[in-house]
Structure formats: C-alpha cells, structure tokens
Design a binder for these strands. Structure first.
Length: 171
DNA sequence: GTTCCGATGCTT
DNA sequence: AGCATCGGAACG
C-alpha cells in the first residue's frame, strides 16, 4: 500500500508508513481475543476500512486485508500531504494525526476502499521500488511478547513524513 | 538528544 | 487496569 493515495473528500495524502497485523495468532492484533463489537469488520472481507478509537483521543485508520474470517489489517501510520491539508509534513506524521488532518473518524469504519464512491478510499499513486522500503518492529506493542519485535512495520526509506516513534526504532 | 507524564474514553 | 498516541516538560 506504500505509495498509494488515501483520499477523504477533497483531502488526500500518499501512504508512506504502514504496519501489518497478521491475524488472531498475532499477539499485537486487536483480533487476538477473537471477534468483538470493536473489531468485527476485521473478520469480514478485505478492502474495507477499520477505524477505532485509540487512547480515548485518536481515531486510527486501517485497511482490512484478509479473506472472510481471517482478521488481517494494515495500519496507516504516516502520509505525505498531497491535497487539502497544506504543506506541513508534521500534520500527517503519525497514525493519530493523519486521521485528524483528513477528517477521518470511526464513522468511516466499514467502508469499501477499492472504489471512489465512498467518502474515504484508496487510490493509485506512485510506484515504490522494493529497495526504497525499510522494515522494522511495530510501534507501541511492547505488551505483545515475541510479536513485539516482529519486522512488520514498513516505510519509505528516509521519507520526511515517517513517524517519530518509527524513526527511533529503525532496523 | 533522551525519558517521563498526563490527557481522555473505550475495551476487556 | 490497559491501551496500535501525542505534545510538552525535564533532563543530560
């Protein structure tokens, strides 16, 4: 998903940092306790948004990626500003900040990301070469035991919009 | 540069 | 009680 556009109405950014959450066996995933009211959309088909409230203050945006019944998702952690949010890279650096910048909230959970008919969706973008992608451990999942150090965070190497937490844990 | 802390509310 | 965060304060 790196390099693609995340579009919300007249605002858009290019995805420059992501994290993968692999399924019920992933001890860092919201799906680790099975299906609940909050994570229900993770158990549906891929290409659908999953937005939830984090730490009581921030709406975090994910795209479900698994098949029906396999709760995989990708968290979007940072964007490069493209349209409607000014040129300040700090505004979309971090998963809680980028949703604020684009006006994405929990009301945008469960939407189809694969077309352009929903208020929020993913659109094609720039092609990112494999050699331009860095990999490291996910941020903020120290509770997850062995899974805390799994190399499941991906970002465009050296990009100025990559989040702060990510930079300090580069692999 | 680093670490620590409070805000704030939903989930288990 | 814990949490897929953030900005600011304190410190080195």
């Amino acid at each position: 998903m790196l390099g693609k556009h995340l579009v919300a109405g007249d605002r858009a950014g290019i995805i420059v940092e992501t994290e993968a959450y692999l399924g019920s066996h992933d001890k860092a995933s919201h799906a680790r306790f099975g299906r609940t009211r909050r994570n229900a959309v993770m158990f549906g088909h891929g290409g659908v948004s999953y937005v939830y409230l984090c730490y009581g203050m921030y709406d975090l945006f994910n795209v479900v990626t698994g098949r029906d019944g396999d709760p995989q998702a990708v968290l979007i952690r940072a964007l490069e500003p493209v349209r409607g949010i000014g040129g300040d890279v700090a505004v979309t650096r971090g998963p809680g900040k980028l949703t604020r910048a684009l006006g994405i909230t929990r009301s945008h959970s469960g939407l189809d990301m694969t077309g352009a008919s929903t208020p929020v969706y993913i659109a094609p973008g720039r092609r990112i070469s494999r050699t331009d992608i860095s990999v490291g451990p996910r941020v903020g999942v120290d509770y997850a035991g062995d899974w805390a150090s799994a190399p499941l965070r991906f970002w465009i190497a050296g990009h100025p919009s990559v989040s702060r937490g990510a930079r300090s844990k580069a692999a």
